[in-house]
Structures are given as structure tokens and as C-alpha cells.
Simulated assay, not measured.
Amino acid sequence: MHDLQLAAGGRLRHLITLAGMPRATIERLLERAEAMRRDSQGGARPLDLLDGRTLINLFFEPSTRTRTSFDLAAQRLGALVINFDIERSSTVKGESLLDTIHTLEAMHCDAFVVRHKESGTPETIARNLRSNAAVLNAGDGNHAHPTQGLLDALTLRRRVEDFSKLSIVICGDIRHSRVARSDVDVLRTLGVRDLRLCAPPELLPQSDAAEFAQCSFVHTLDQAIVDCDAAIMLRLQKERMEAAAIPSEADYFARYGLDAARLARAKPGCVVMHPGPINRNVEIADEVADGAQSLILEQVSNGVFARMAVLAELLERR
């Protein structure tokens, strides 16, 4: 994957995964995201770094936050954005995905933002391009969601100086979560040593899963959250699991939901994060989701700047 994502000199060529990405590259993207925030005056001032570039959003799964923030990020950088309508395209007539990509390439598009239910689809597209277009993974199956990992790291980075001193718990449907995998990748690369995964046994990955090798597995949130600096809560991905994989929502919340009492077991000021969409009072209580320690809406805001940084890195003319 290293040869696919990085061009000569270490410049980003595609963004498929954060696994194995050099720390210097990640830190450069995070620094650039902060520069985008500053230069755009928090998003109020448009920039023209990508004037004349064309980006196509190819979303084969529903999305609110990711699709909208990619759209805003590209537009604020001056690019033309096409939101490809899958249901009204020739894919419903049987056209293959790669034939669709090659057709769009022939129209001189510069980047494809791809979300797909099948793991590996963005990589397949990137390896079969016939042009110099860039591919950005907006979430593929349970494999990766790299821009979510970057925006989560950006959100934490604005509050901490040393990632190595953090204790972080990720709680929820980890087995089916591409967000969990990208968060683990980026947090490990940035130096987090105490990274705890918490879920019912049915929703934890296999204990020998290489991508989680340096994480600790904890089966109760009451134990996992003790003395944590951050809690990243994940939704139950019912569309990716068998119906019998979890107890009722009420039982799940009683054991794994984050409420004020459980949050009090963490360090004072422990921040709460969630990639959305939230299932309120299933994985997180209203009082916590809307509370003073919640960074959930800040994550959404940071997503625009993180994606601006990635798009500029990939598409800015030099």
C-alpha cells in the first residue's frame, strides 16, 4: 500500500488507509488542516488553491457528515464538485464499477471520493486508473475511514501536546468498524501507548488481529474507562452484523452505554467523541452527548479542515 499512496518525495498520491503511513506525513496533514482553518478564517473565507480542479463524490452507501464535508472542503478550495447519482447512473444497467470510473476519467476528473460497502474498493479503483486522478477513501466496508481518523486526531491534537501520555478507550462495535481501525492506526502512529478496546465479546475483533495487536481488550466499560483522557464511542452497525450478535438496545446501554456516572470514572475533563450518526441512549446518553465534555460537533467542524488539507495535498498544482 505504501507504494500506492505515496509518490516520490513522500507526497501523498492517494489516501486509502492510515495503516503504515509515516508519522511525518500525518503530522504534515494535521498541521495543514490547522493552516486551512486559519487561512479560511474558520471557513468564512474561500481559498482558490484548487481552482480548475474537479472532484467527484462516488458514494455507494448513505452519508451525511463525510459527503457534505468533502463537498464543502472542495468548494472552499475552489474546486468543482460533482455528486455522482448512483441510482440514476449506468451502474443500474449493469455497467461495472471500473467501466464507470474509466468513463468519468475520460471527462478529465481530478479526484474520486469513494465510499463503498465492500472493503478494498478504493484500492482497486486506484490500482486500475488510466489517468493521474487521485482516489480518496471515504469508508470501505469495515476496512478503513482515513479522513475520520485524521479529523479525530486533529480534534485531540488541539487539546494535548503529547499523545504518548494519553489513555484512550474506544467502545462499541469495533469488529465491524472502519473508524476504529483508522483511529487505532493514527493514534498508535502519533504515540498513544494506552489504547483500550471495549465491547461485548461478539463485537470485539479476533484477539490475534494484527491491526489491534498493541491494544488491550476490556469487556466492561466500567473498567475500561477508568482514568481515561478520551472516550471514543461507536455506534452499533446493525447493517453489518447478524441480528443475534447483540442483546437488546436497553441491555446494551446498561452494560456499554456512556452516561454521566460512567464518565465520572474517567479522568476529570475526559473528552467524549463519536463519529456519528449517534444512536442516543444506546451507546451514549443525551446528557453526555450534549454535555460540556462532548467534542462531537467539534469533530464535524474539524472534518472539513482535515479534508481540505488532504485535498490540497493531493490536488494542488506545483
Rank of each mutant, 00 (worst) to 15 (best):
H2N: 04
A7T: 03
G9I: 12
R11A: 07
R11M: 04
L15Q: 03
G20C: 02
P22R: 05
E27C: 10
R28A: 15
R32P: 00
E34G: 08
A35Y: 10
R37H: 09
R37Q: 09
L49Y: 14
L50K: 00
D51G: 10
G52C: 01
R53E: 10
T68G: 03
F70S: 06
A74M: 09
A74L: 07
R76A: 14
V81I: 12
S90H: 15
V92R: 15
D99Q: 05
T100E: 08
I101C: 10
M107N: 02
F112V: 01
R127M: 11
L129Y: 10
R130D: 04
S131P: 07
G139R: 11
G141Q: 04
N142L: 06
L150W: 14
L151Y: 12
S164W: 05
L166T: 04
S167L: 04
V169G: 02
A180L: 09
V186H: 11
G191F: 05
A209S: 13
T220D: 02
Q223A: 13
A231N: 02
L234T: 01
R235A: 02
K238Y: 15
K238G: 07
E239D: 08
E242C: 05
A244E: 14
A245W: 14
G257I: 04
D259R: 05
D259Y: 07
A260S: 13
A264Y: 07
A264F: 10
P268N: 08
C270R: 09
M273D: 04
H274N: 01
P275C: 07
N279M: 12
V288L: 08
A289T: 09
A292T: 10
L297S: 04
V300G: 00
N302E: 02
A309E: 05
V310I: 12
